[in-house]
Design a protein around this nucleic acid. Structure first.
Lengths: 157, 157
DNA sequence: CGGTCGCTGAGCATATTGCCCAGTCGCACG
DNA sequence: CGTGCGACTGGGCAATATGCTCAGCGACCG
């Protein structure tokens, strides 16, 4: 669960240059190939590295509009709402939260007009009392993990 | 920018089994290796596939608490606030939005108590008028892209 | 009709992988 | 203090994948 400095360097290296293989990574890090193999295996079985799936840009797919919707759910309808939302392709992510709303979801759409269709589909479900949507204008900090990995590596030595 | 059915199958295949190479992918898809190579190159230069970086789980790194903070910014302080937030490792993502708040950011922390420290650091900056935080309890739909890719592939043929 | 484009199937040299081994080092434990 | 364990090293090996090239073929378009 805790990662050391070498783990941190490995993850950062892979994040920056994903195409390099184990051999090249071992050269960059100055350690033996077997070490990199072992570390990678451990990080993956630990769950620290969940996988190396392709990072797809919804905008390039034709969905340039992103929005966050805060949903208020009728008591006891949580399960149904989750099932409903998971069937909507434009729902990229769904969380249940504390605070004003009960759920927060990330949506994408083909345009602002299309966003209306998506929202209608999202909230067109009994159990959702109210929805409040915030459209994303800019994304100054795209989803990132490197700083946190470096932090974790330092904390652990 | 638009993807066809083969592109869609390729992306979905890579998302499900990232470790397979070009050759294995061509076998699974029933097309020639060169075709897969060409499609992959095109998808990457298109920006549809941004890369194959490791997907790191913050929880496994020791940051099991996720929260979303809505920030209200003093007029004209946007740039400074962005720069400030980008220096905080626990800020995984930052968006500027329409609606009640001006910005929405995703935070992680080592515990609920640690979240207080993170929030203090985030809002401890002149220019941030008010912050409202929602702690994530469950994540019924983790960040996903496959359904959207399938949708896009069908739309385009 | 000619030209272009995408896909196929193949070949080839090179690089990488997965797997094995013996040897070294640091360290905790008895 | 000695022992055993775990991690890392450096090497070797067969099998596999890669990057690259090529000719052929069918579809489409001007």
């Amino acid at each position: 669960m805790a990662i050391d400095h070498l783990d941190g360097r490995l993850i950062v290296l892979l994040a920056r240059e994903p195409r390099i293989g184990v051999l090249e990574a071992s050269r960059r890090l100055g350690v033996a190939r077997g070490t990199v193999q072992a570390r990678l295996d451990r990080l993956q079985s630990n769950g620290v590295i969940r996988g190396f799936g392709p990072q797809v840009d919804p905008a390039a797919l034709g969905y340039p509009v992103t929005a966050f919707a805060t949903l208020e759910i009728k008591q006891g309808q949580g399960q149904d709402v989750r099932a409903h939302l998971s069937t909507v392709p434009e729902v990229l992510e769904l969380h249940t939260t504390t605070g004003h709303g009960d759920m927060l979801c990330r949506l994408v759409a083909r345009s602002n007009a299309d966003l209306q269709r998506v929202i209608d589909r999202v909230v067109g479900f009994e159990g959702i009392v109210r929805a409040s949507t915030a459209i994303v204008m800019e994304n100054p900090v795209p989803l990132r993990i490197i700083p946190l990995v470096e932090q974790a590596a330092e904390d652990a030595g």
